[in-house]
Design a binder for these strands. Structure first.
Length: 591
RNA sequence: GGCCUCGUAGUACAAUGGAUAGUAUAAGAGUUUCCGAAGCUCCAGAUACAGGUUCGAUUCCUGUCGAGGCCA
């Protein structure tokens, strides 16, 4: 059991024994002691002071003495400053932790909650390649899945591919008109980029047509409807819906190109899915639930035949769920897919990794599902993340300021090459090993940069800063890991630990942080926030570096110290490797 | 217009209502006869504004100003 929990339990027990306090009244905080004070963990007494009507000093002293007397194996001292009871945890406890845990490879993974969670993320469109925003989504989704697994949940990773609709037809029309039969192979272009070019081509040509029509005196919004390209696209969408064989064949060919391109990118960034849903197969499913909803009076029909739900009692608006012509809107499809996922997986919880511009939409979706009586609706969670903006402002596809995912990955990896060459390291690496290392560094840096901030907040992507390999970066952590591994190639902890007496401050501070790791995995899961792990593991690496700088490991004062420090090093390396893997980042043995 | 976010050092990010508001970068000063200097050590620098709630507010409430998003 973690020390934080042991402290809570021992304080609870003491409060009961000293003052027979009711359980309900025993709320108090335990936190890590600030570095400027003596102690390891601090009990904040203010809330108890009020209830017990004792002065902080008296209460602190009584509680502290009781803890020392009854839990002497845990605590070796205490002090009170204002309403803060600072507890010193005994070295014995840290030494035991080190002996038991130094080579654990499965932190937090032992508990099986038997609960299943579906996580939907990535969810691309098949008319253009992935961009920077998709990367944040993918990294978040993948990492959250790993973090849930580490907390004992059964995870299903899903993806809904937006593979039909007017925007897909635009690329198809443009390809028909302008490609002269070119293919990704004939042009040596990655499939998703190839199709994306025709989407751009469509927009450019369409714009020209609109301008020409406006020049003849037509109103702009009419010109937008009347432009031949738009008419052709509408017609194609209709044919697609009627399952016209030629249109469907072109559609599946072009989507095939895109998937091939996506697969390459997903593979490179280490993203994968257990189940991929296609909108083309699910977009009609929602309608029957709308009918059921009407029968249950959850929805109502207006005179024109459109179907709505009244969410004003919940502080929201009336929301359209089916158009008057009987066609679905986005939310109709989402209801259908939610049901489909439940039929497939009977999950207890459903997480959607979607940008925060959908906050309102997802709120509505959850409410509707609850009103429809869907069992897991209460456990639908929108993992909402903020937009990734550039130093120059928002990414806008129309202005060509979108950062392409593949370009960015390539830039990161090639920069890793430059920096590694400059440093003079990895000179003895075989070419394939070097490439593997550079992928680890470049892609790791990018993942860490996007995961180290609170997902809910929008963030600014600074290209120059993102390829920095110093400071709060994956590279610095990877370096620490490689350095430890280098030491461990020379020395190994003894099979039976030497008897230890006392820990130096830096030794203790580091072990204290390492001991917290399972708690941190738990926090990251509860908060659905990988940045907590990123911050934590960077702090661990930094603390190790200070420790390493202050104390020699292989040339320690004596054998017991050497063994102790090798154990600390081993445990640090294991936890770095573990935590980074939960972020989807690999760590090298050498770099 | 209605609803929802967010305003913290030059810049980018932290801080379950708790102690002197942390970290990284950029700027300044050190640190390689010694386990890997992509490191370590020191030094500076910030809570948009005005009220309120309380032992205590970056955090909660109200208003102002500013940025972004969603809905037509």
């Amino acid at each position: 059991m973690a020390i934080s929990q042991l402290i809570k339990d021992s304080v609870l027990k003491s409060l009961e024994e000293l003052y027979s306090l009711e359980t309900a009244d025993k709320d108090f905080q335990v936190s890590k002691t600030k570095t400027e004070f003596e102690g390891d963990y601090t009990v904040v007494l203010f809330s108890l002071v009020k209830k017990l009507k004792k002065s902080p000093e008296l209460l602190g002293n009584e509680l502290g003495n009781h803890l020392i007397k009854n839990f002497g194996d845990l605590f070796s001292g205490f002090n009170i400053i204002k309403g803060f009871l600072n507890l010193v945890v005994s070295d014995e406890y840290w030494l035991n932790t080190l002996n038991d845990q130094f080579d654990n490879a499965n932190y937090g993974r032992s508990i099986n909650k038997m609960e299943s969670v579906v996580i939907e993320y990535s969810s691309p469109n098949t008319n253009k390649p992935l961009h920077l925003g998709h990367l944040r989504n993918n990294f978040l989704g993948w990492s959250i899945a790993e973090i849930f697994k580490a907390n004992g949940y059964n995870i299903v990773k899903t993806c809904i591919v937006n593979d039909r609709g007017i925007h897909i037809c635009k690329s198809m029309i443009a390809w028909q008109l302008f490609a002269n039969g070119a293919t990704p192979t004939s042009t040596n272009t990655k499939g998703d980029h190839f199709v994306g070019e025709y989407y751009v081509k469509f927009n450019n040509e369409y714009k020209k047509q609109v301008e020409e029509l406006v020049a003849t005196g037509m109103e702009e919004n009419e010109a937008e409807k009347e432009a031949p390209l738009m008419k052709a696209t509408q017609e194609m969408l209709l044919k697609w819906e009627q399952a016209d064989p030629q249109v469907r064949e072109l559609w599946s060919t072009m989507n095939g190109w895109v998937y091939k391109g996506f697969d390459e990118t997903y593979k490179r960034i280490g993203s994968d899915f257990d189940k991929i849903y296609h909108e083309s197969e699910t977009y009609l499913d929602g309608k029957k639930y709308v009918e059921e909803g009407v029968a249950k009076d959850v929805f109502f029909k207006k005179e024109d035949g459109s179907v709505w739900i009244d969410l004003t009692p919940d502080g929201l608006d009336e929301k359209l769920v089916l158009r008057k012509d009987g066609t679905s809107v986005y939310i109709t499809q989402d209801i259908g897919l939610a049901q489909q996922k439940y039929e497939d997986y009977k999950m207890d919880q459903s997480i959607y990794v979607i940008g925060d511009e959908q906050n309102y939409h997802m709120k509505v979706l959850k409410l509707i599902c609850q009103k429809l009586g869907i069992s897991y609706a209460a456990n639908m969670y929108h993992l909402s993340y903020g937009m990734v903006e550039l130093t120059s402002g928002k990414m806008k596809s129309r202005e060509g300021t979108v950062v392409d995912a593949d370009d960015l990955i390539e830039e990161m990896v090639s920069d890793a090459r430059v920096k590694t060459t400059e440093s003079g390291k990895a000179q003895d690496f075989a070419p394939d090993k070097l490439n593997e290392l550079l992928e680890m560094i470049g892609i790791g840096a990018m993942k860490f940069y996007l995961l180290r901030v609170d997902p809910k907040k929008k963030m600014i992507f600074n290209p120059e800063e993102s390829i920095d390999l110093h400071g709060f970066t994956a590279t610095a952590i990877q370096y620490t890991h490689a350095r430890i591994k280098s030491i461990l190639r020379t020395g190994k902890p003894a099979s039976v630990p030497f008897k230890q007496e006392k820990l130096f401050p830096l030794e203790k501070e580091l072990v204290l942080m390492l001991e917290e790791y399972p708690d941190r995995i738990g926090d990251a899961c509860k908060e659905m926030n990988p940045s907590l792990l990123a911050v934590y593991i960077y702090e661990v690496a930094r603390k190790f570096n200070s420790f390493y700088d202050a104390h020699s490991i292989l040339k320690a004062e004596d054998e017991p110290k050497k063994d102790l420090r090798l154990r600390i090093a081993q445990m640090t390396a294991n936890i770095i490797s573990s935590a980074m893997s939960l972020l989807g980042i690999r760590v090298p043995e050498k770099m």
